[in-house]
C-alpha cells in the first residue's frame, strides 16, 4: 500500500475520532479555566448522546438532535454548577455524582431505543473542488462531517475569546484568583456558571456526534470512558483551546493507530498513554514560571465566597 493512502487514512480517521474529544475538551477547558473541575464529562456526554439520538430518531432531523443534545448537556451541567458554585459543595464528588447520574439516567431512559437504526444520521460532506487537492483534499474535504469543521472553528474562536477579549480575561482571572477578580467587579459566580454551562453544551454536542454521526445508534454506555480521556486531554492541552485541538487529534491518532499497529505495539500501552502523558505533562510544567504560564488554574476545585479565605 502506498504511503499516501496510509497518511490519508490515518489523518482523516484522526479528524473523525478526534472531533468528539475536541468538542468536550474545549468545554472542559472553559470550566476549569474558570476554576470549576467537572468530572461529570462522561455523564454529560452520554446524556447528550441519548437525547440526541432520541430526538433525531423521533423527528428524523439530525440537526435538531444535535441542538437538543447540546441543550440537555448544558442543563445537566447546571446541576454541577449549582452544587459546586452556589452550594460550594465539593467539586470532585459532585462531578462523580453527575457521571453516575448521566450513565444511570441514559441507561434507564434509553432502553426503548436500544437496537434501533437511525435512518437519517448526520451526513458526511464532500467539498467539491477542494476534495481533489492531493493528500490534503481527501483528508480534510472528502467525507468528513460538518461537526468536524464546526469543532475546529470553535477551537479557534474559543482560543481567541480566552486570550484576546475582556471576557477571556475575566474567565482566567476567576480561575486564578477569584477574590481579586471579584474586587475588580467581575461576577465570579456568573462567569463560573457560564463556563460550566458551555462545558455541558459542548459535552452534549460531543455525545450527539457519537450517536448521530460517528456511529448512528444508541447503546447503553456508548461513550465508553471517553469523558475520562477528556479530563486527561484538558491537562495535556495546558488548558489552551488550540493545544486542545492538537491534543485531541494526537490522542485520536493514538487510538486509531492502536488498531493499525497492534501487531507491533501492545494495545494496553497505547491505551494507557493518554493518562500517563497527562501526569508527565503536569510534572514537566510543575516548576517556576512554566507552572504559572502553563499549569493548572490556581483556583481549580476551590469554591469561592466573598470574604472567605
Amino acid at each position: 500500500m502506498s504511503w499516501e493512502s496510509w497518511v490519508i487514512a490515518t489523518f482523516s480517521r484522526t479528524l473523525a475520532y478526534g472531533t468528539p474529544l475536541l468538542l468536550a475538551t474545549l468545554g472542559e477547558i472553559y470550566a476549569e479555566r474558570a476554576g470549576v473541575l467537572n468530572l461529570g464529562v462522561e455523564g454529560m456526554m452520554i446524556i447528550g448522546a441519548f437525547a440526541g439520538f432520541a430526538v433525531a430518531h423521533n423527528t428524523g432531523n439530525p440537526w435538531l438532535g444535535v441542538l437538543i443534545a447540546s441543550a440537555v448537556g448544558g442543563v445537566f451541567s447546571l446541576i454541577h454548577a449549582f452544587a459546586s458554585i452556589t452550594l460550594r459543595a465539593n467539586q470532585v464528588v459532585s462531578g462523580l455524582a453527575l457521571t453516575m447520574l448521566g450513565l444511570g439516567l441514559s441507561g434507564v431512559l434509553g432502553r426503548r431505543f436500544e437496537g434501533m437504526p437511525l435512518f437519517h444520521p448526520l451526513k458526511e460532506v464532500t467539498v467539491p473542488g477542494l476534495a481533489s487537492i492531493p493528500i490534503l483534499g481527501p483528508i480534510l474535504f472528502d467525507g468528513q462531517n460538518l461537526l468536524v469543521y464546526i469543532s475546529i472553528v470553535l477551537a479557534v474562536i474559543m482560543w481567541y475569546v480566552l486570550y484576546r477579549t475582556r471576557i477571556g480575561v475575566s474567565i482566567r482571572a476567576v480561575g486564578e484568583d477569584p477574590a481579586t477578580a471579584d474586587s475588580l467587579g467581575v461576577n465570579v459566580a456568573r462567569v463560573r456558571y457560564l463556563c460550566v454551562f458551555v462545558g455541558g453544551v459542548l459535552a452534549g454536542m460531543a455525545g450527539a456526534y457519537l450517536s448521530i454521526a460517528y456511529r448512528p445508534s444508541w447503546t447503553d454506555g456508548m461513550t465508553a470512558g471517553m469523558g475520562w480521556i477528556v479530563i486527561a486531554l484538558t491537562i495535556f492541552a495546558f488548558w489552551n483551546p488550540l493545544l486542545g485541538l492538537v491534543g485531541a487529534y494526537f490522542f485520536a491518532a493514538l487510538f486509531h493507530l492502536s488498531f493499525r499497529l497492534q501487531a507491533w505495539v501492545a494495545p494496553e500501552l497505547l491505551k494507557a498513554m493518554p493518562y500517563a502523558l497527562a501526569i508527565l505533562v503536569l510534572i514537566a510544567v510543575s516548576r517556576g514560571t512554566l507552572q504559572k504560564r502553563m499549569g493548572a488554574p490556581s483556583a481549580l476545585t476551590l469554591p469561592y465566597r466573598r470574604g472567605e479565605e
Binding site: 487514512a9 490515518t10 480517521r13 475520532y17 456511529r215 454506555g221 471517553m226 486509531h256 488498531f259 493499525r260
Partner: peptide, 15 residues
C-alpha cells in the same frame, strides 16, 4: 462490546 473500537478497527481494515 466497544462500538468506538469496532468503528476504528473497521476503518483501519478498510484503509
Amino acid at each position: 462490546f466497544n462500538p468506538a473500537g469496532a468503528k476504528e478497527a473497521t476503518e483501519a481494515l478498510i484503509a
